[in-house]
Structures are given as structure tokens and as C-alpha cells.
Design a protein around this nucleic acid. Sequence first.
DNA 1: CGCACTGTTTTGAA
DNA 2: TTTCAAAACAGTGC
Length: 277
Amino acid sequence: MPELPEVETVRRGLTNLVKGAIIRKVEVPYPKVVTSDLTEFKSDLVGRTIEKIDRRGKYLLFRFSNNLTMVSHLRMEGQYSVEPEGAPLRKHTEVVFHLEDERQLFYNDTRRFGRMTLVKTGDELVTVSGLKDLGPEPTEEDLKLSYLKEIFNRSHRMVKTFLLDQSNIAGLGNIYCDEVLWMSKIHPETTTDKLSDRKLSELRKNIIAEINRATAHHGTTVHSFSNIFGETGQFQNELQVYGRAKLPCLRCGTTLEKIKVGQRGTTFCPKCQVKKV
DNA sequence: CGCACTGTTTTGAA
DNA sequence: TTTCAAAACAGTGC
């Protein structure tokens, strides 16, 4: 499901619904989802308040009282839902947080790729792989052009693959990568060191703008994504290339092509996005 | 039925 | 050190 705008949508929904709630009991029907000690996971959260929910890249950070943080990554199809106490588990419910107020928070995950781990607050930045090496957020303040120039010039990887690497920039996934490359008129297989400073600046602006715009639309619903209220995002109506292979480019009319780049399906316009060699 | 595809990340090997 | 393919898993569509 989720790239940064979708995870941020989930974060806001969770904040509305369960911020301030107290955990009464934790059940883990699918133990593999918890990568930290399972016994501690089930016992340590009992009695704790969900004080805040943060996000970093595609990671959700549940801040509990007494300096505990639960790191949750939804991977492909992870999803939270809030139900009345006693509601039956869903087919793919992996964790149940019973709350003190007659509700329960479910973590559901059809493909079972999502993972969560419990750490002492602050430790996530040193112990959680993926999180500790995460690149800057795609924002005006955090994503400096000088930084991009440096990492792009140093690498010889294809730009699409490079943007998907979360240690370079946090939060972009397959959909928004294809979108920003189309917007910036960059062929996905161009190697990063071939991009001019001017192109890089354009790409940076497009990344920031696109992520902001998608977040404002509550994210994109392609397969299964819906927010905690069960509402779908609206941004799929705004996509220019993703999911439009064989359809005309909305800028020049050329038929969009779909190829594989670094084992990910990649849609682009062969006329607008010419590979620089 | 078999195969390819799907919004992600980690792992191990080259 | 850097980069890449396979694997983790379930569902859907051809």
C-alpha cells in the first residue's frame, strides 16, 4: 500500500482516533510480525498511553508513555483499523491492541510483509535497520539541493532505482517515482551522475511538490489502501503516468511504455523522457 | 492450473 | 564498498 503520503494519512487518522488511548491487553495472532522480543512486546505495552504518533519516511512511530516507541512499517499492504471491543478478527489481523475504552486497534496485513518492533525511545535511530540509515524527508527544509548534487554525482545507478533507495531520500515509492520522473522529463534508466544541476533542481522541486500534493489528497488508492476510517485516497485521479501504460502521454500524446527497472514496473513516456547517455 | 503481476524492504552474494 | 536478484507472502487476472 503505502508511500509517504499514504503513511502520513494513516498517521493523521490514528492520531485522531487513538491518541491518548491506554492499552489494556495485546494479542499477537501472527507472531512473526513482531521482530523484537514477543513476550516483552505483549507485556510491556499494557497500561501505557499512546501519547503521540510520529512518522519518519514510511515508518510509523507510536510513542508510548514511559519512553517506549513502537516502530511499525506497513510494507505493501499493512493497515490499521479501530473496532469496538469484541469485534471478530479479520482474516489477516496480526496484532490486536485492546484499549481501556471498549475499543480495539487491529493491525491487518494481507501479504504479511509488514513488521513492528518495540524499542526504548531514541534507540530506533541506532538499532532499527532501515530507519537508522534513512535519507532526509522530501521537504523544502530537509532536502537540500547541495546534498542531492553530492549523492547524485557520486553514484552511477539508474535514477529510478536511486530514488527508491530510502537511504537517499525517505518516502518515495514506485508510484511517486514514476510521477516525478515524468514531471521532470527524466528517463528512469538515466544514471544519476548524468543529470545536470538544473535537472536536479527541477527534480527536487517536483518531488517536494508531488509529495505535498498527494498528502493533501490523502494519498493514492491503487489496490487496497484506505485510511483508518476506511476511506480511500483521492490522488489516483491525479496520476499522470503510473497505471497508464499503453495510454497516451498527457503532455505529448505519445503512447506510454512500461519496462522493468531494478525489478520494478516502470511507466514512462519515450518521447518526453529521453535517456541521456 | 500455471504464471506474471502488485504500493516494500532485507539479505546474501557477486 | 557498491549494486543486484531473490525472498518474504497473499491475492488477482490472464
